[in-house]
Design a protein around this nucleic acid. Sequence first.
RNA 1: GGUCCUGUGGUGUAGUGGUUAACAUGCCAGUCUGUCACACUGGAGAUCGCCGGUUCAAAUCCGGUCAGGACCGCCA
Length: 582
Amino acid sequence: MRHTHENNTLSASMIGETVTLKGFVQKKRDLGNLVFIDLRDFSGVAQLAFYSDNPFKNITTNIKSEFVLEATGTVVERSSKNPELPTGDVEVDVTDLKVLATAKQPPMLIKDDTDALEDTRLKYRYLDLRRPVLRDMIKMRHETIKATRDYLNAQAFLDIDTPILTKSTPEGARDYIVPSRIQKGSFYALPQSPQLFKQLLMIGGFEKYYQIAKCFRDEDLRSDRQPEFTQIDIEMAFVEEKDVQTMSEGLIKHIMKETRGIDIKTPFPRLSYDDALRLYGTDKPDMRFGMPIRNLSDVFASTDFKVFKSVLENGGSLQGLLVEATHGALSRKDIDKLTDTVKPYGAKGLAFVKKSADGFSGSVAKFLSDSEKDALTAFMSEGDVLLIVADTLKVCRASLGHLRNVLGDKLGLIDPDQFDFHWVVHWPMFEYNEDEKRYQALHHPFTRPIDEDKDKLESEPENVYTYGYDLVAQGQELGGGSMRNHNVNVQTKVFDALGLDKKTQESRFGFLSEALEYGAPPHGGIAFGLERLVMMLAKTKNIRDVIAFPKTASATCLLTDAPSEIGDTQLSDLGIRVTDES
RNA sequence: GGUCCUGUGGUGUAGUGGUUAACAUGCCAGUCUGUCACACUGGAGAUCGCCGGUUCAAAUCCGGUCAGGACCGCCA
């Protein structure tokens, strides 16, 4: 028998009933002739009471926190109720008590506001998971997956899983590699995403596919990035981008309703990639507030200020953010601090001008010519502060894009409960990599260029745009997708533009090209980052909160101590020799 | 690959060259009939992450190293 009731279902209406509860000891309160035990199960907490004449009262002396108990007793009304607790009106007058397991003193406080540090929590993750906050976030993950499956199943999508042991595709992220014992010297890779398999499924005639797919990328971690993560992976045949977006909007709407009870409006607004970068400095702008980036290169075109002048002469740019007086005041000290937030993005500094009743002040005020003052007066009111970065356009955007988010947060311009779902669309196909002196796919190489740009693939690849789209909310990329190349000639031209020679194309992607030659339906899809979605729904900034057993920032598991060394036999079976490298 | 923050009883913190290494919580013992962060009394518990250096003297200063975290690069 499990139990007769979940702890949190106890209520005044059950007074007089006999119940059997099971759970962990949250807290024991021994008042001498009266003992209380808070018993915690997955549902919540119920109070066990041992009155002075209770024969089981004596054994409570040995019961400590986190012991596992089975308690049978009568539900009775409390003589002093606790309105803070859902079950605070009643308690269980225990008539039978079993200790199912004892417990060592836990290395951390098992309650929501635990003060344990990250490493303790990760080493004893199973204890950490007992905390209701974490439990609820893991539950939210389940509910998100359930809502996803319900929605997609209802629309006749097929859940099809794809190989975990697959082929390395060096375009993109670093692969996790698995050595082959049978084919010594050859290696599988864990999938960075099921991208190519889902395209092959479309070619295989499955018109609506989805998968809650594990993905692996051997790159450095962040607070929102783990080496293994989960995608809600979707692909559809005979569709255009609008179809995938409409389906996605329905899915997100359903998830929001089912998990949080929130009704959201669809369709989502659309913003072009170029506008996102121009106005907000990022491809995932937080649209819960305004404050767009202003191009100031024209205003200061003939400046005498040496710093600005040399930047402009070297092909750089002047961009700024206008902090209006109504947003709040920025002190000199504030601006110094903001300068520090901008520096990691390559900005050398943060110049500023403040408009006051009798003119301008700030670091560049004394260099202002009359015409520059006029130009600034056109959009600045008294008390406004203009923060300026002078650098390459890329640095201006990266630093101001970040600064804008910092300001939105600091000045309280962001409503944390607002969901600003929007599409960032019309992505460029390529980005030039200065280090490697070649073009790289901005999205991925299988993205389909828009029809009007197909002919520019050879002549001007930098001007080729795609049927690509990202779903963004609260300054986070929640998912991204595109129409794919179903025409082998276009796909080959993309590979060519990426600088892949024919031999490389053949060895890496030959199977795809060949498949495309056997009749590929127009198709496209999208993949959502499950963890990112759940983070948003659970209102946490830490991806580890929404993964039951996450890894540390250096990609280790403190609980199991993975990764670890393997024995010589295992190594020789694989034909692998480990070399010293320090 | 780089920058920065953190490491001190079980847990979380304080401690800027000489302290009996402080505090909270947890733990142990005792008192207690209405607690729910129970209260009260008493107690145990720390080679100050590790190695080396400076110094009469190091938790404290210096160098290295390990671990955790945040960020930049990276993440098609």
